[in-house]
Design a protein around this nucleic acid. Sequence first.
DNA 1: GATCCACGGGAATACACGGATG
DNA 2: CATCCGTGTATTCCCGTGGATC
Length: 383
Amino acid sequence: MDLAERIARRRTRKTKDRLVGDWDALNPAIHPPEPIGREALFEALLDAIDPIFSDELPGNVYVWGPPGAGKSAIVTALMSTLRTELSSQRPIVTATRGDRTRSDVRFVYLDARQASSRFKIYRGILDAIRPESVPRRGVGTDDLREQLEAEMATCEGALVAVDHLGEPDTVDLEDVRQFFTSFAGVSWIGVGRTPPEELTTRIPRSKVHVPQYTYELVDILTVRGTRGLSRSLDHDDATRLAEWADGNAHDALAALFVAAAYTQEDGRGHIRSEDVDAGIDAVPEDGIPIGRVLALSDNERLVLRRLLALSLEGDYSIDEAASEIASNSDLTSGTVKRLLYELAQIDILRRVEVSVGTQMVGRQPSKVTPNFSAALFERLHNS
DNA sequence: GATCCACGGGAATACACGGATG
DNA sequence: CATCCGTGTATTCCCGTGGATC
């Protein structure tokens, strides 16, 4: 979605909606440009890349911490701040080039959920720093690497942050290390959950630990609630959400988002504590972040939406669900079945044993249920 | 002609269970 | 009684093909 489109949406939302003026403010998959709180952590990150302030590329960095602790929030904020403050790189194409008082280091943020292969990572960087369009097909991965290296020779290099490493369907820290070994001009910041001591491979010397939120989460909910809602969130409700989420900002925001959606759909102008309860109920414990679901391919998301529509009507074996889903889509039931199994393997879906039918022979079938908030997914999909 | 990747399809493997075997 | 075997499903794994693009 480009910026103009986003701005247009906000305008229409402001006028149409009553309770919620800005859904993005409540959306756990979207991070505000400035981190809320966490000044000390931001300092630690700046320390880790300190040479950048003398126009030199820093060493690589590993940023790690538990889910919902704000790793993405702080790293996206860091990269966009560096881009506007230090680089001659234009975040939005404007004025002239060549502001010589600024360094010519490029700052690139990549989400490994989209940049899920060596090819896509090189391509993502090229796409971010090169004004012309970068091919998506027809060019080999090594070819692309050479293009990127050539590009690096024309500037003072790039600092690349790769977020969401080591998820079931993303590259891990070791992959990133290999992608950039003997790659002159690129330093990287890897972001993941795995504690350094559990990693078996070579880890960057610089490490920044992002601990779980404690008291700060109430502030985050309050600030984002104020930005998104026409009437601010009760302090008690913010506290309750933060406690229930156990410091996980993603889960707390997801519950708040759904609570706000329910309230607004009911035509009311204020979130009651029952709405907060309903929001909490709509977010599974130990679920996966909604960003992973949103990053799936079109067909995978289509299959999920169809599956959610089905599950209202009782128990289906995977086989039955697959034929049902396939019958009103372009995909064959074999492919849908494989997709469902694959989604379960990467934790997007949860498999539940089910005794459907009466056959006494053969292996027990199972059904699949979402391992994320279906209510949130549906609403983000329609927005 | 080369490239990446999503699809489709099918082979290989895992599991459940009853019955046979040691 | 424990183990193995056969049969029928469920699940995983793998690879060829073709679309879109350069």
